[in-house]
Nucleic acid binder design. Sequence first.
RNA 1: GGGGCCGUAGCUCAAUUGGUUAGAGUACCGGACUGUCGAUCCGGGGGUUGCGGGUUCAAGUCCCGUCGGCCUCGCCA
Length: 596
Amino acid sequence: MLRTHTCGELRREHVGQTVTLCGWVHSYRDHGENLVFVDLRDRYGKTQVVFNTEEDSRIDALARRLRREDVIRIAGEVRYRGDDLVNPRLATGDIEVRAHELTVDSSSRTPPFELEGSDLPNEELRLRYRFVDLRREPLQRNLIVRHQITQAVRDYFNSRDFLEIETPMLGRSTPEGARDYLVPSRVHPGSFYALPQSPQIYKQILMVAGFDRYYQIARCFRDEDLRADRQPEFTQIDVEMAFVERDDILELIDGLVCQVVKQVRGIELPSPLPRYSYADVMERFGTDKPDLRFGMELVDIAGPAAASDFGVFRSVLDSGGRVRGINAKGAADRYSRRLLDRELKDFVGEYGARGLAYMKVAGGKLESTIAKFFPEQSQQDIIELMQAEDGDLLLFVADQADITSAALAALRNRLGRELNLYDPDAFSALWVVDFPLVTWNDETQRYDAEHHPFCQPHRDDRDLLTSDPARVRADSYDLVVNGCEAASGSVRIHDSKIQQQVFDLLNISEQEAERRFGFLLEALRYGAPPHAGIALGLDRWVMLLTGDDNIRDVIAFPKTQRASDLLSGAPAPVDDHQLRDLHIRTDSPDQSILDE
RNA sequence: GGGGCCGUAGCUCAAUUGGUUAGAGUACCGGACUGUCGAUCCGGGGGUUGCGGGUUCAAGUCCCGUCGGCCUCGCCA
């Protein structure tokens, strides 16, 4: 070991000891010939090193040349700083190390940006110099939290007889779901592996194989467009159990979540976590992942809307749409007319809403440019339905049902944040259960699986599979935390007859099913136990527990929105001979220009 | 595939209606200083205004294209 201590551990009790510290020069304060201070930093903290070297001008000259981010090693004596000189903002602030030896292990170029300060440089630069960015305390903290979570997860499952089993990264492409990342085969010209979107099929096969308690911290890949909370490669805490029912999984994960949240954030969550049906949250919040840190539920005002003379509302109702609204309590003066007419209208427009109606409540009446279309009784009905009081701002969207849901759910989240309706440090976790098994896809004119094709239909809804598929509930469940899908799973089909019924419903022919998932179906024919599972999005959990809203800040080496790694330069062209080995010819735009 | 924001010194930003030598803070370099901890003081260097084209007497500013980053709708079984 080159060091005796880290930069975060020296305290008053070490005074008098001779120590050796290693680290990066965080800052330096040069007071001339005989006095130089250096804050030495490593992952554990910072320690002030003082060079006070009347007797040794050689060290002094070296110390005065130190610059930020140089890597040095110092040996010296731990000293109490003195009563007036302690730095309460530093964990090691009581002491300093008076150096009598200094080695510069490596000098640094001037860093491309400063590690401290409120103004972060743009992300492009941070990503290009990731090794510098990762030295910053917030990112170090995030990766530490990430480690704590995976560690707690492993402890939790290991102590319950689970086995951590790896599944292949090079697998078979299954064309349903997200776009696959493909890997060409050298020895099978024209054939490709796919990187896993999730270990779904493998973990089900592990159940068939008798490994009745499995988990894995699994890397997954999806070649879809990115978002602030989505990366092309991400990590799932993947779990599967045999001989269990839905509630066994929910209780297992309740326990895990409560333990992790308590351990990392010191917050005590209710156990069991509350459960809501899909139908319930869609009606009350317009989304299957409601943020329950605040109320402001959606209200249907079809009754008073139909009794009004407001053409927009009435024509929407006549064509089978809905009129719903939310009540922003006390916000009547918070949004100017201009903001409502432009900004918020455009905002709901992003979700397909053609307009945004609003009314302010004053003197027990509605104030609005459209109030005149609402007779007295309608106004009172709206006020009653929305539990409105003077000073409230009521916002309405009239449209097809799914558009009112999407627009109002988004608006609700935005208003909740802007009006500070909740404590950003608060935690709300809930289960959403009884999702529909399938949803009708207008484009392809057929049913799509809501979760995936191996998800078990609800026992009580089997008869509906043929008669009214859209009403069939699935034995599936999502864990929602602060409006974010934090885990998702289901009871799987282990009966090949039911599996066949679901394929029929999804319009997947026997041939097609064999071609796509034949190896799973074959496995299910050789003694498949009842089984169920779930996957937790690790990256999102780290975001939730650190309070970050950017997934790149919880991943050591993330990719940009266009899926490039600015640090390494990936993706990049490869040598022609590599392509020849893989039997691949490219058809890039550049190439075609050259061809012409 | 669609919509939006951004790109000026190493970094964060400013630059009036299109106007003459593109500024500030910080970092960096040199000097002074024995108790600093956002050290202080003095001095200095540093610009292809992302790139290409256009309009104009004149472009950081206006227009078109392009590259890159971010947010978002669609997409993500």
